[in-house]
Computed example of a mutant assay.
Amino acid sequence: MEQWFENLLWRSRMIVISGVIASMVGAVALFYMASVDAFYMVAHLLHYASPELDMAARAILRGETVTHVVEIVDGYLLATFLLIFGLGLYELFISKIDLAEGSETASQVLLITSLDGLKERLAKVVLMILVVRYFEYALGMGFHTSMELLQFAAGIALLGLALYLSHLGNRSH
């Protein structure tokens, strides 16, 4: 009875496959969305060099393009998050990925050996997403008071501190 129950417990880890599949489908969908957005952004820019476009319209187009680029980067980062999460779940709960372990070209980012390692990699991606989101938000900001400018500067300083502390954490490993 005990052996049967332990066998059942061990095989129940296969439920994680649903999370792996959902993460991979989500990653593919986000890569697709970000790639489509990038294609349309470039197509939208084809008339940028047109002599009919005045400087004000060109400046507006440039600003919109920078915002679109940030959104595209954000989409790719979210897709990367899901990819790392899916691969990490698979490696931790199901099986090691033989192709990744034996390959000289495989990135160490995708080799997950512990739950802490998975959390650490995901935290770095989340931090980058937050940096990109802050940048996206900052592009649309208009400063009306010196306090708003000071708060914006404090936000940048805190992001810099977070990146610095993240870098310190990398060196300790």
Rank of each mutant, 00 (worst) to 15 (best):
M1N: 11
E2D: 15
N7G: 11
L8S: 08
M14E: 07
V16K: 00
V16F: 00
S18D: 04
S18C: 03
G19C: 05
G19V: 02
I21D: 04
I21Y: 00
A22P: 04
M24V: 05
A27F: 03
A29Q: 15
Y32F: 15
Y32T: 14
M33P: 10
A34D: 13
V36G: 09
D37Y: 14
D37V: 14
Y40M: 08
M41T: 12
L45G: 03
Y48C: 05
S50M: 01
S50L: 01
L53W: 00
L53I: 05
M55R: 00
A56V: 13
A56Y: 07
I60K: 02
I60E: 06
I60C: 04
I60N: 03
G63M: 13
H68C: 14
V70W: 10
V70N: 11
I72V: 15
Y76M: 13
L78H: 03
L78F: 03
L78P: 01
A79M: 10
T80V: 12
F85Y: 10
F85W: 07
L87V: 12
G88C: 08
L89Q: 03
F93G: 12
I94K: 09
I97Y: 08
E101Q: 09
S103K: 07
E104D: 11
E104M: 07
A106F: 14
Q108N: 09
V109G: 12
L111M: 09
I112D: 11
T113G: 11
D116T: 13
G117Y: 01
L118E: 13
L118M: 11
L118Q: 10
K119I: 13
R121Q: 15
K124A: 10
L127A: 06
L127C: 04
I129N: 00
I129P: 00
L130A: 04
V131M: 01
R133L: 03
R133D: 05
Y134M: 01
F135I: 03
E136V: 05
A138F: 04
L139P: 00
G140M: 11
M141V: 14
M141E: 13
T145Q: 15
S146A: 11
M147T: 13
G155F: 06
L158Q: 01
L158D: 01
L159V: 02
G160S: 06
G160T: 05
L161M: 07
L161N: 06
L163D: 01
S166I: 05
L168G: 02
G169M: 14
G169K: 08
